[in-house]
Every structure is written in C-alpha cells, then in structure tokens.
Design a protein around this nucleic acid. Structure first.
Lengths: 150, 150
DNA sequence: CGAAAACGTTGGCTGGACCAACGTTGGTAG
DNA sequence: CTACCAACGTTGGTCCAGCCAACGTTTTCG
C-alpha cells in the first residue's frame, strides 16, 4: 500500500494470517491424532459436540451451528448413524427436516471425545500461562465475532 | 478426565483449537480472495515471499522454509517457472540441487502480493487495536516456537 | 569402497471447505 | 386457492493444503 514504506521485511513469519494458519495446522494435527483413537474425524466431533451441547436439531441447523456445509453434514451424519451414535428421524412438524439426536452411545462418545479434546488443548497451549490462554481465546473470539457479523 | 469436574461445557466455541481453526479458515478465505487477483495460490505466495525475503535456495530448502512438502514444491515451482516468475537452474556445486531464483517479474509479483497480503492483514485484524494485534502475534509465535522445538 | 543420506520427481491419498443442481415440502403474496 | 419463493436433504463434483511412498541420481560419511 505505501510505496514509501521502506520495504519493511513483511516477514512472512510475523504475518497474522501465516501464524494463524500454522497454529491451526498444528492444532489440527494434534486434534486429528486424538480423533483417530476414536476412529472419527473433525466433522464428526463437531457434530457430536454440538448435539451434546445444544441438543437435537435438523441437519441444516447443525450445519449452521458447526460451520459445515449442508452437503457435508449429510455424509457425516450417515457415518454417525451407521455407527449408532446418532438417530435420524423425520420431523413430524416439518416434513422437510430430519431431526438428529444423540443415542446413549453417541452421548458417551461425545463425552469421551470431549476428554480427548481437552487433553489436546492442554498440549497445544502448554507454553502459555492460563492468563495468556484466556487472552488468546479472547482475541480470537473477538476476531471471529467481528467477521461473523461484519 | 476428571469425573469430578463439573462437566464443564467444554464449549466448542471456547476451545482454542476450534477458534484457531475458524480464525485460520477465515484468514485463508481472505487471503485466497487476495491471491485470486494475482491468479496464484497460497503455495505460490509463500515461495515467492520466501525467495524475496531470504534469497535463492534449493527446492528442498524452500520447502523447509515454507513448510511445504518437497513434492508440492515441485509443482508450485513448475507453475511459477512457467509464468516466468522464477528460474530453476542446476546447482553447479551440488548436482542434486536446483537453485531457484526470482526473476525481475517474480520480484515485482512478490512485491505486489506483499501489498495484497498487507491489506488482508488489516482486514483480518480490523477489530483489534495495534497493541492487541501485537499481543496476538506474540502469543501465536510463542505457541509455534514451542511446538517447533518440542 | 560401500552404506547412508539428501535431492528432485512422480503419483497417489486424505480431509476440509465449497458449489450447483434436483425434487420435496412449507410459507406467503396475490 | 394458486403461484411463487424459500428452506430442506441429497447427489455429485471441484479445489486446495498437507502428507507419504517410491524411484533414480548425487553426495557425504564411515
């Protein structure tokens, strides 16, 4: 933007989007490793966690909650239903919708995954004090909130 | 894992790895949109930026600098070379290596991309004060450093 | 000298994020 | 009441980033 700017190194390594990318990639690797123990992947976890936290919902609503495209929700719910972690029932009140609910096994799995994820967080945030962790979470939350209702 | 823990919501939305994932995804979208104007993608930018900052290098070294797999460097350098942004020359001192260097056009493009990326950063970090931006960058850097030499 | 390592390259696979299209169902404006 | 439009689930496809295995060549090291 500013041709007069003395070519400040720009320094890939101090660029926020680069740092975010790398940090998220690392977090993703840790999380994936954790999920692998449950033979599940990111989408599955998000859906289970959302169902456990906020209760049953239609697939479209789940997608909105989790930031997953409708079409990807279909496949993930297929998987989860196939494993008996979730049930897909037509919504009597609106026949366009399927209501997705956790089974008992699904609630169990969600709980276990939450434990796994908690361990991953500790691992990921190991170098930060708890005040710093809170700060990081606060900053990221602000960022997302801003861009969510931009 | 502490059954005594009062079932603290775990709250997907307050999980560091979730927030990082979402923030990085958003940053990625912004960056991609910026790159699209140059008809290039993430890998291309990283390589150009690294070459502009730290000078010519072998493909393997570039991959290490940029966190890109050797095999992916091949394809990206093919693209860049095809556009005349970069030259691939055998290293006389070590015939295993190709030395990659920016052309004048490549240096130009790297400069323009840096401008684009700077704009993206401003957009991304809009909701944060400059002190907060610095703080965020500091925290992320600490995280990466720790996990880099874990 | 011989084994081990590094390099460039090919080819392939995964996961996450998207998008377009379709038929069905629901709501709503005329 | 009839159109029309919006939302839903579903299919099928694309794209990018990341990763891994294998190969032949070249270099380094024991």
């Amino acid at each position: 933007m500013d041709a007069t700017a003395p070519q400040s190194p720009a320094g890939l390594r101090t660029t926020a989007s680069w740092l975010l990318n790398q940090a998220a990639a690392h977090a993703g690797r840790l999380a994936s490793a954790g999920f692998a123990a449950h033979d599940l992947r990111g989408y599955h976890f998000r859906l289970l966690a959302s169902l456990a936290e906020d209760g049953p919902a239609s697939q479209a609503a789940l997608g909105r909650r989790c930031g997953i495209d409708r079409s990807d929700v279909v496949a993930a719910i297929n998987d989860l239903a196939g494993r008996g972690l979730v049930v897909r029932a037509p919504d009597p009140a609106d026949r366009r919708r399927n209501v997705i609910s956790l089974t008992a096994a699904g609630a169990d799995e969600a709980h276990r995954m939450a434990d796994t994820v908690a361990r991953v967080q500790d691992d990921l945030l190991a170098p930060l004090s708890s005040a710093e962790r809170a700060q990081l979470i606060r900053l990221l939350t602000r960022l997302l909130e801003h861009h969510h209702n931009n």
